[in-house]
Design a binder for these strands. Structure first.
Length: 484
RNA sequence: GCCUCAGUAGCUCAGUUGGUUAGAGCGGCGGACUGUUAAUCCGUAGGUCCAAGGUUCAAGUCCUUGCUGAGGCGCCA
């Protein structure tokens, strides 16, 4: 199996390889004219054309060169006579590494629905669309680490299993080693978690933020990048029960530093993909255009995928306060015509339709909304100084809203004042005794600090233009689905 | 959790006001083809119309329930 040449290296620079012999291995994308094999080995978007003189090969062997069969070819690299490619491989030796009986293999060389692909997640990565998505997903993960490392941040691993259920970000998955058929009971008849593995109830984490704050107040600048779990019964194209989240947390940052970081980070990530994955992006761009041809004009994207990404990195994100957002919405046409389903009222959270209006209609670019009413936000967000003319107190929270997918980042300056935090926890019924350590961070060497959470899959969704979040993670976990 | 829509060949879909033997394209299979780019051309097989009840002389088509999927909403990242 040695001496394999990767197709990417042949296609990117073949000048020194012409006339030489090469061994390639990959999966058949097409076998045309009993003569031309389009071979893809996953290293890049494009295929290598393998030319077969069929008289030289056994007919039974060539029969097995079917869609997505895996083959090994040895031959000579030459300039192509055809128009579609510059270089091609003239086969001298051909070996079937893995057959794919076309009578039984579910994938077909044609457009198949996203739903069908999802049910065949073990094969869908072999398609153009999904291989492009997952190459970009990798690139994005790498860019995240590169960005933070280059800026002096430390990567921190926060626990997956958490003993606190006070993180306040949603329903949690219980983790237990107890025998569910024979649950031990206390005298009062409740489940006796003293007999469980950790001797207390535990769950899968919904956020690493609270622990990341520990890191920020010691190492200064930290970030987490790991899986998170929400047991919400969410059935939408932008929610998963298991997803990956990036959470930077920085000491001495206020809400404005936090927004600057969020904007710079988003732009860096998008630029990285524009610079390093042009072929994959171009394919996804074309794919989207093909899809939108059948849509009525008003449902199409205003720009192609690549143009959208360039537009986002070339323009400043709009920054407004929650109060300004409410005013804009109340003066908007859809509001005056009664088109909004939900009320726009200071103190009520902005709904998806409101965010969409701000991002897609009013500003037509990413928007950062800050200073939300305190009563609709989490306990750890820093209480702002009272403002003249506002109906209630606000917190230093910010959301970054992107076109199409809505909230991609949610963050805040954290409440560093011990007494204020204790009062907020009391008001919002957060158990102080469980978060004793979180409170002690404010008692001993506390500091102003801020951070945010970025939904990894939502960013992949935005950059690849995929409509459903289940198609940017290899094995999506959603209500009623944990196959693969 | 709520609302809406859908489920017909391997895949993507059509199927009229309920009416004889359920169709197409692609894919498969058989054949032709030495410069193809989702190759092309000829031929061919392939159906528990999601499931269970019901209405009717007659149900793919109408009704009820269930299952599965999608879109939207809520929750959020």
């Amino acid at each position: 199996m040695s001496k394999r040449t990767e197709i990417k290296s042949i296609l990117t620079d073949f000048s020194g390889l012409l006339g030489q012999e090469a061994t390639v291995m990959g999966w058949v994308r097409a076998f045309r004219s009993n003569r031309f094999i389009a071979l893809n080995d996953g290293t890049c978007m494009n295929n290598l054309q393998v030319v077969v003189n069929f008289e030289q090969f056994d007919e039974a062997l060539l029969k097995k060169v079917s869609f997505h069969a895996c083959i090994r070819v040895v031959g000579q690299l030459v300039e192509s006579q055809g128009a579609g490619q510059a270089v091609e491989l003239i086969a001298r030796e051909l070996e079937i590494l893995g057959e794919a009986n076309p009578e039984l293999y579910p994938m077909q060389p044609k457009a198949q629905s996203m739903e069908f692909m999802r049910e065949h997640a073990h094969f869908r990565m072999r398609t153009n669309t999904f291989s492009a998505v997952f190459r970009i997903r990798h690139g994005l993960a790498y860019a995240i680490h590169k960005y933070f490392n280059d800026q002096g941040y430390y990567y921190m691993h926060t626990p997956i299993i958490t003993g606190s259920d006070a993180e306040g970000a949603g329903e949690m998955f219980r983790v237990t080693a107890l025998d569910l058929d024979k649950l031990p009971r206390t005298e009062e008849g409740k489940i006796d978690f003293k007999q469980d593995f950790f001797e207390k109830p535990t769950n899968l984490t919904v956020s690493g933020q609270l622990q990341a704050e520990i890191g920020a107040l010691a190492l200064g600048k930290v970030y987490t990048f790991g899986p998170t779990f929400r047991a919400e019964n969410s059935n939408t194209s932008r929610h998963l029960a298991e997803f990956w989240m990036i959470e930077p947390e920085v000491a001495f940052f206020d809400i404005f530093d936090d927004m600057n970081l969020a904007e710079d980070f988003c732009k860096y990530l998008i630029n990285y993909i524009l610079d390093n994955y042009p072929d994959d992006l171009a394919f996804l761009d074309q794919r989207l255009q093909g899809q939108e041809k059948n849509l009525p004009q008003d449902q199409r994207r205003p720009m192609g995928l690549t143009d959208t990404l360039r537009f986002v990195v070339d323009n400043d994100f709009e920054r407004i306060t929650y109060t300004e957002a409410v005013n804009i919405l109340r003066n908007s046409k859809p509001y005056k015509k009664g088109k909004f389903e939900y009320p726009v009222e200071w103190g009520k959270d902005l709904q998806a339709e409101h965010e969409r209006y701000l991002v897609e209609k009013h500003f037509q670019k990413p928007v950062i909304v800050r200073n939300y009413p305190a009563n609709i936000k989490a306990f750890y967000m820093r209480l702002n100084e009272p403002e003249e003319g506002l109906p209630g107190p606000t917190v230093a929270a910010m959301d970054v809203l992107f076109p199409g997918i809505g909230e991609v980042i949610g963050g805040s300056q954290r409440e560093e004042r011990h007494d204020v935090l204790v009062q907020r926890m009391k008001d919002m019924n957060v158990a102080e005794e469980e978060l004793w350590w979180y409170l002690e961070l404010r008692k001993f060497g506390g500091a102003p600090h801020a951070g945010f959470g970025l939904g990894f899959e939502r960013m992949v969704q935005f950059i690849t233009g995929m409509g459903n979040i289940r198609d940017v993670i290899a094995f999506p976990r959603t209500p009623g689905n944990a196959e693969f």
